[in-house]
Design a protein around this nucleic acid. Structure first.
Length: 221
DNA sequence: GCGACAG
DNA sequence: ATCTTGTCGC
C-alpha cells in the first residue's frame, strides 16, 4: 500500500474502489470521529488528529494528535496517499474505535471514485463520510439558501455526491460516500453533526487539534 | 491542446 | 494545506 509512482497509486485506487460499500452498513451510532491532517514547518511535518465525539450529543469523548515526517507533496487526486497513513496510525492508538468517520476531503467525489474518505474507509474497515470545503469535480443545480438545502452533484452521468447547506446563507459543503453508508444517510448525519457551524463539529475539533490549538472551539458559547 | 485540480 | 492584520457585519 505504499506506491512509488503516481501510476502505482492510481492502480491501488482502482482496486480500493471495488471494495467501497455504498449502502448503510453499521449499528446505531454511539460515537462519530473527525479526522484531519495539518502541516507545519512548511510541509515537512504532518500533524494527524482525531476527535471522537459521542453521538448525537457531540460531546468530546477522546482526542489524539500525532506528528510524523510528511511522506510527499500534495498531488491532486492522490491526497489519500499523503494523509491516510498518519490517520491510520492514530486510529490504532485510540482507546476505542469510533462507529463512523467524518473525513476532511472527498470520498466518492473523485475522478476515479476513490477519494480520501473511500480510501480510509476501506483500509480501516470503518464507515466513513467525505466532507470537502471546496468543489472538486462534477456539476449541480443552484442550491437553496436555507439550512438543509442540498442538490446532487453529477459527473459523467452519475451522482457522485451532494452539495449541502449546513447553515442558512453560508457557503455549502460537499458531501459524499466514503464507505459503508448511502449518500442519503451521509447527508443526514452531516447535518446532525453541524447544528451550529458550517463544518461538522467533529471536523472542527479535529482541525483545531491538528493546528496545535489547546482550547476547545466553542459549541455553545 | 489548454487549463483545472480535495488538502 | 500554509504564509498573515485588520476589518466589515450580525
Amino acid at each position: 500500500m505504499n506506491p512509488t509512482t503516481p501510476e502505482a497509486a492510481i492502480a491501488i485506487q482502482q482496486e480500493l474502489r471495488k471494495q467501497v460499500v455504498m449502502a448503510d452498513d453499521f449499528k446505531p451510532l454511539q460515537t462519530v470521529a473527525g479526522v484531519d491532517v495539518g502541516f507545519e514547518e512548511g510541509d515537512r511535518i504532518a500533524c494527524g488528529a482525531i476527535a471522537v465525539l459521542r453521538y448525537p450529543s457531540l460531546q468530546m469523548q477522546e482526542s489524539l494528535v500525532i506528528r510524523r515526517p510528511t511522506p510527499f507533496s500534495y498531488i491532486p487526486g492522490l491526497l489519500a496517499f499523503r494523509e491516510v497513513p498518519i490517520i491510520l496510525e492514530a486510529l490504532a492508538s485510540l482507546k476505542s474505535p469510533p462507529d463512523l468517520l467524518l473525513c476532511d476531503g472527498n470520498g466518492y467525489i473523485h475522478p476515479r471514485r476513490c477519494g480520501f474518505a473511500c480510501h480510509l474507509g476501506v483500509v480501516s474497515g470503518l464507515p466513513a463520510i467525505g466532507v470537502a470545503k471546496t468543489p472538486y469535480i462534477g456539476k449541480h443545480e443552484p442550491l437553496g439558501a436555507e439550512r438543509g438545502a442540498w442538490q446532487p452533484i453529477y459527473d459523467a452521468g452519475e451522482i457522485v455526491g451532494a452539495v449541502v447547506r449546513t447553515q442558512a446563507n453560508v457557503k455549502p459543503v460537499y458531501v459524499s460516500v466514503g464507505h459503508r453508508i448511502s449518500l442519503e444517510t451521509a447527508i443526514e448525519i452531516v447535518l446532525k453533526c453541524a447544528p451550529k457551524y458550517r463544518l461538522p463539529e467533529t471536523t472542527r475539533q479535529a482541525d483545531r487539534l491538528s493546528k496545535g490549538r489547546k482550547t476547545p472551539v466553542s459549541l455553545q458559547p
